[in-house]
């Protein structure tokens, strides 16, 4: 089992490792890690389209007619801003997850 320990590399790269890993990674673990990382990147790539979809949803809403049922501007604004808060936060979490999943010394490559 000569797979290099992630912590050693992290230490060499001058970066503190957040989660101490006492056992070096096995090759299949590294493979799983790489696979997980690529899927996270896929998710990050999907985010803008997801956001576009969510922000196009208000176009389908019917506004309130006089006294009728429907969406008011206030409700729409709450929805839009909720998406606006959630989307960047999700993106931030994804970016953090991608950074954790990538080996410290490996440059990020396209999937």
């Amino acid at each position: 089992m000569t797979a290099p320990g992630q912590d050693t590399e992290a230490a060499l790269a001058g970066r503190p490792s957040r989660r101490a890993r006492p056992v070096p990674l096995l090759p299949e673990e590294q493979d799983r890690q790489g696979f997980r990382r690529r899927r996270l990147v896929d998710a990050a790539c999907a985010m803008p389209f997801f956001g576009m979809l969510l922000w196009w949803l208000p176009l389908l809403w019917r506004g309130t007619d006089a006294g009728g049922e429907g969406i008011t501007t206030a409700q729409a604004l709450i929805y839009i801003f909720a998406v606006w808060l959630a989307l960047p936060l999700a993106t931030g979490l994804l970016i953090r997850a991608i950074r954790r999943a990538s080996a410290p010394d490996r440059p990020e490559v396209r999937p």
Binding site: C45, W55, A76, L77, P88
Partner: peptide, 21 residues
């Protein structure tokens, strides 16, 4: 003209969220 002004912020937000592209 209502909430149309939001669009000029929503577009760049999407670009930033899609930074990987």
């Amino acid at each position: 003209s209502g909430v149309e002004y939001l669009t000029i912020y929503l577009g760049p937000s999407l670009v930033m969220i899609g930074w990987w592209w």
